[in-house]
Design a protein around this nucleic acid. Structure first.
Length: 871
RNA sequence: GCCCGGGUGGUGAAAUUGGUAGACACAAGGGACUUAAAAUCCCUCGGCUUCACGGCCGUACCGGUUCGAUUCCGGUCCCGGGCACCA
């Protein structure tokens, strides 16, 4: 007998799929389609475990759906533009294009080694001109429709390098290259009007019933629809041609408690006043050093300065001061906010700091205690100190104040969204050029017949400036016979990832962005799988783009992704040692040996190379910074793809974090070896023909001769099958693997060597191989053929549960007394309450707890338990 | 700070969603086989208590609803994801 040799088995299976073109699909209106999509990878160099997990999940789902008879599309491609390629290019002195292409070649090979059933004939890369060409064309359409426009917005600016930095490139407020403090700079950039679609993006979340609730909640909160009022505070004098500060509030009931108004540092009024106020000018300058990230904004110290200017309260006519606050954003809302220190915690702290008045106008509904010396009272309540509005609750006050403001022409009810328009300009090189021309002071979309605007690939990176910005020639062009200049900014890479799912349906189409016939056959995607970190931005942009494509007549569906699965992260143990400076030097788990106590806990670890001890850094997300990445390649070479896939699916359910464990991988390998050995040693090649019909079900004649032991064995197998089917449908693959293990335990357990048992075990093996196939396809494919089931397991029908095998004459019914388990009784599954009660009360272990007490209530949960309530 | 998750044995987890808590594995301990090791097979394995039958406690913590709560509700603590230029 030969030992299990994963390499030979896996190579042969992969070759077979390649020759048969098993995973290449075309549109077939006769068959039900199923589009299964994994988020495409950024070609960073090598696959990491997160990729392995992601693509194993989609491969499992794809193969399962294929066995259910569907026409399954499972494509793969490369999200090839992005910042890391520029960094790598500078480091390695290669052009980003070449570096990216090398990575793609290597990673593609790794994907093939893992046996993923992708339709490689549809492979695409976003850095290819025949891909981004259509994105450029689509953008010009958006400009023509008024859905894309140019406006001034903020970027991180390194004054020394004179370059724009990504948030990631700003480390503690400084440039990551030269440590110079970063400032905010306002420059003209292209934006897309996602806010025009805010209402639809919110409302259509209701259509996405097969998305996780948490993702829908996050998106709804991100869009942030609110109902409030716009209220005008007139300035006591015009500044920069501005006479009124409109503010938006969701709490107009607190309007009488306004004691000042704050405006953004970049507000035109602030800028105009700064011209004659050096203190204010200095303050505004200092605000420019603040981070543009919202998290930093929320945590920073709130600072402000009085402008000396006042505005008029729209209801009382009193003057309130106008302040400049570092926490007010110019590009969100009107750049001005009203402040109610008594009823908003941030305003409260600000008012305390600058000795501004705090005026209570809301009292609690119940006689609750509030202490305005300690904190703001932010709950809704009843109005006080508000003149004619005193005594009203929130809703009544909202309406009464809205009505009065409207009558005075000082405000109106307004619906607002937190969502902001999508800024798509990037001042970087490795992206799709934005297809716009500047000529005679006009912004002109590049005409369709001049697309694509090709990004030159043979470039040298100086580390600071984008090569197409650095080259004065590249931008030069003409328009209608006159000199013109190309835009040198490139698109946000979210642009490419917002429509790739649609392009997979017709990647070769050269007559337009999409071939509507093919796109509408496959779309929407039936199952989308990717990391939870994309729950908001990528998924929201892709939903938005899909609606834009629909409105351009390219697709006929409203939403791109019907069902969504967000997989958890992959974690691993980390180890470090401190160097002389006290810095942590992280050591890869592969280079560490561990020592355990008698409970199996890791108590000590040593570096394999020098035998010296290392510190244990805990289980954290696999990352470069902690050097705890486990290279999938090493595991594949040692154990084979099936073992790696099986472990990945078994160790945790898809949505949860997955902890890499070498022992766990060995456990997965042990299961596969056991299956292999069981088949080699115990399975007769004629068994299939002897016991099973052409659908691999037990032949009727054997069904009739089952002994009690073989019937019980068959129940175990069909129970496991039923559970596995349930779990496949809800994407919980760890328990599918459990079911497979149970079946193997059953069919490999020692038992009487008679025909009924052999018959049941043969049927069980056929079920096991088909259940296991989507997860560990190579070994299942090999054994299916070798044991004479058939040529290609993928063509076999999915196993069906024989409900008659599950029927029991007698079950264990749990008996509780006052909710505590006190015994079990053997009864018929459809026993009635009276009978069950009589039997239970006759049992001594129950009597111990009921004796001398009165029976108050009896609850029977059929097939499960009986609860006797006594006192 | 704001939004969204998560917390169950020594470990990863399960519990068909309000009805037997710990399936299936991993680790550990004991045993068999072996000159030995590896591999393989068998047994034990939440805590406390009991010679034993059994009893009590136990799903982060505090409280509530219910005949019954890992599951539902309110509060607290800790961990993770996102926060608009990482992808």
């Amino acid at each position: 007998m030969q030992d299990y040799n994963p390499r030979a088995i896996e190579n042969a299976a992969q070759e077979y799929w390649q020759q048969q073109k098993t995973f290449e699909v075309t549109e077939d209106p006769e068959r039900e389609k199923y589009y299964c999509l994994a988020m495409f990878p950024y070609p960073s160099g090598k696959l990491h475990m997160g990729h392995v997990r992601n693509y194993t999940i989609t491969d499992v789902i794809s193969r399962y759906q294929k066995m259910l008879g569907k026409n399954v599309l499972h494509p793969m491609g490369w999200d090839a533009f992005g910042l890391p390629a520029e960094n790598a290019a500078i480091q390695n002195k290669t052009a980003p294009a070449a570096w990216t292409e090398q990575n793609i070649q290597y990673m593609k090979r790794q994907l093939e080694d893992l046996g993923f059933g992708f339709d490689w004939s549809r492979e695409l890369r976003t850095c290819a001109p025949d891909y981004y060409r259509w994105e450029q064309w689509f953008f010009t359409r958006l400009v023509e429709k008024g859905l894309a426009y140019r406006k001034v917005s903020a970027v991180n600016w390194c004054p020394k390098d004179e370059t724009v930095l990504a948030n990631e490139q700003v480390v503690e407020g400084c440039c990551w290259r030269c440590d110079t403090p970063v400032v905010r700079k306002e420059i003209p950039q292209w934006s897309i009007r996602i806010t025009d679609y805010a209402e639809e993006l919110l409302a259509d979340l209701d259509q996405l019933q097969e998305w996780p609730d948490q993702v829908r909640a996050m998106q709804a909160n991100w869009i942030g629809k609110s109902r409030g009022q716009e209220i005008n505070f007139d300035l006591t004098k015009d500044i920069a041609g501005i006479s009124t500060l409109p503010v938006y509030t969701t709490r107009p009931d607190t309007l009488l408690g306004v004691t000042y108004v704050s405006i953004a540092a970049t507000h035109p009024v602030a800028e105009a006043l700064a011209a004659t106020n050096s203190e204010l000018a200095e303050f505004i300058l200092s605000c420019a050093e603040q981070s543009t990230a919202e998290a930093d904004m929320a945590l920073m110290e709130k600072r402000g300065i009085a402008t000396g200017l006042n505005c008029i309260h729209p209801l009382t006519g009193e003057e309130v001061p106008v302040w400049v606050g570092n926490y007010v954003l110019m590009d969100y809302g009107s750049g001005a906010v009203m402040a109610v220190p008594a009823h908003d915690q941030r305003d409260f702290e600000f008012a305390r700091k600058y000795q501004l008045p705090i005026k209570q106008v809301i009292a609690p509904l119940e006689d609750g205690e509030i202490d305005l010396d300690k904190e703001a009272f932010v709950d809704k309540g009843r109005l006080i100190n508000s003149g004619e509005f005193d005594g009203l609750d929130f809703d009544a006050a909202f309406n009464a104040i809205a009505e009065k403001l409207e009558r005075l022409g000082k405000g109106q009810v307004q619906t607002n969204y937190r969502l902001r328009d999508w800024g798509v300009s990037r001042q970087r090189y490795w992206g799709a050029p934005i297809p716009m021309l500047f000529a005679n002071g006009e912004e002109i979309p590049v005409p369709a017949d001049r697309l694509p605007v090709v990004l030159p690939e043979d470039v040298e990176m100086d580390g600071v400036q984008s090569p197409i910005k650095a080259d004065p020639e590249w931008r030069k062009t003409e328009y209608q016979g006159k000199p013109a200049e190309h835009e040198t900014d490139t698109f946000d890479t979210f642009m490419e990832s917002s429509w790739y799912f649609a392009r997979y349906t017709c990647p070769d189409f050269d007559q337009g962005m999409l071939d509507p016939e093919r796109a509408n056959y496959w779309l929407p995607v039936d199952q989308y799988v990717g990391g939870i970190e994309h729950a908001i931005l990528h998924l929201l942009y892709a939903r938005f783009f899909h609606k834009l494509m629909r409105d351009e007549g390219l697709v006929n569906s409203d939403e791109p992704f019907k069902r969504l699965l967000c997989q958890g992260m992959v974690l691993a143990q980390s180890y470090y040692r401190l160097d002389e400076q006290g810095h942590k030097e992280w050591i890869n788990p592969a280079d560490v040996e561990v020592e355990r106590d008698d409970k199996g806990l890791i108590v000590a670890a040593r570096c394999k190379a020098d035998g010296r001890p290392v510190e244990i850094g805990g289980t954290t997300k696999m990352s470069k910074s902690k050097n705890n990445g486990v290279d999938p390649q090493a595991a594949i070479e040692q154990y084979g793809a099936d073992t790696v896939r099986l472990f990945t699916m078994f160790a945790a359910p898809p949505e949860q974090t997955l902890e890499w464990s070498d022992e766990g991988v060995q456990g997965a390998a042990r299961f596969i070896r056991r299956l292999y050995r069981h088949c080699q040693e115990n399975v007769d090649k004629d068994a299939v023909r002897t016991y099973l019909d052409e659908s691999f079900n037990l032949e009727t004649k054997w069904l009739e001769t089952l002994s009690e032991a073989s019937a019980e064995s068959r129940k175990t197998i069909h129970d496991a099958l039923k559970k596995a089917n349930f779990d496949y449908d809800r994407n919980q693959f760890n328990t599918v693997v459990s079911s497979c293990m149970k079946i193997l335990n059953e069919i490999a357990s020692p038992s009487a060597d008679d025909a009924p048992i052999s018959a049941v075990k043969t049927e069980g093996l056929g079920i096991l191989l088909r259940l296991l196939y989507p997860i560990a396809p190579h070994i299942s494919h090999y054994l299916w053929e070798q044991l004479g089931f058939g040529k290609d397991i993928l063509a076999a029908a999915w196993p069906e549960v024989d409900e008659s095998a599950l029927v029991q004459n007698e079950i264990d019914l749990m008996v509780q007394v006052n909710g505590k388990l006190r015994g079990k009784i053997k009864v018929s599954p459809d026993v009635d309450q009276d009978t069950a009660q009589t039997i239970a009360l006759a049992s001594p272990s129950v009597q111990k707890f009921t004796e001398g007490k009165t029976l108050r209530k009896v609850i029977l949960v059929p097939g499960r338990l009986l609860n006797l309530v006594v006192s």
